[in-house]
Simulated assay, not measured.
Amino acid sequence: MLADSVSLPLTMVVALTTRTDLLMVLTDRTGRIEWVNQAFAKHISLTTEQLVGKKFFLYLDVIISCIFNKLISENNY
């Protein structure tokens, strides 16, 4: 029973990180990027290697622009 309760959240996290419709970023306390999923990197046209170690807020304008452009292109505004 305990093994199932531990593996279920891990399974969920793995499933979430591989989804292409979710943009995920993990940062440290100072806002430095420690991990991004491939969907996030692809949406802002950078590699994960280019993002890790950088400040998240440096890319905030790029992120907002990408989201805005996607909404406009899909007429979801």
Rank of each mutant, 00 (worst) to 15 (best):
residue 19 R to T: 15
residue 56 F to E: 04
residue 66 C to K: 15
residue 68 F to P: 00
residue 58 L to M: 04
residue 32 R to L: 05
residue 24 M to R: 02
residue 24 M to I: 11
residue 43 H to V: 08
residue 20 T to D: 14
residue 17 T to F: 01
residue 1 M to C: 03
residue 16 L to N: 06
residue 15 A to P: 11
residue 13 V to Y: 12
residue 20 T to K: 12
residue 24 M to G: 00
residue 7 S to P: 00
residue 21 D to T: 11
residue 50 Q to S: 13
residue 54 K to F: 02
residue 30 T to P: 02
residue 41 A to K: 07
residue 29 R to W: 05
residue 58 L to N: 03
residue 35 W to E: 03
residue 39 A to W: 03
residue 47 T to K: 06
residue 27 T to P: 06
residue 16 L to Q: 11
residue 36 V to H: 04
residue 1 M to R: 11
residue 22 L to K: 05
residue 20 T to P: 00
residue 1 M to P: 04
residue 57 F to K: 04
residue 44 I to A: 03
residue 77 Y to I: 13
residue 42 K to H: 14
residue 56 F to C: 10
residue 52 V to L: 10
residue 24 M to P: 00
residue 4 D to I: 08
residue 20 T to H: 05
residue 66 C to N: 14
residue 74 E to F: 01
residue 55 K to D: 09
residue 47 T to I: 13
residue 27 T to C: 13
residue 36 V to I: 07
residue 53 G to K: 02
residue 32 R to V: 15
residue 75 N to H: 13
residue 50 Q to R: 05
residue 63 I to A: 00
residue 9 P to L: 04
residue 9 P to Q: 06
residue 7 S to F: 06
residue 50 Q to I: 04
residue 44 I to T: 03
residue 49 E to C: 02
residue 8 L to S: 06
residue 20 T to E: 10
residue 13 V to Q: 15
residue 1 M to V: 06
residue 75 N to Q: 05
residue 49 E to K: 07
residue 46 L to Y: 11
residue 11 T to Q: 15
residue 22 L to S: 10
residue 12 M to N: 10
residue 60 L to D: 02
residue 19 R to W: 09
residue 47 T to Q: 07
residue 18 T to S: 09
residue 47 T to S: 15
residue 43 H to G: 05
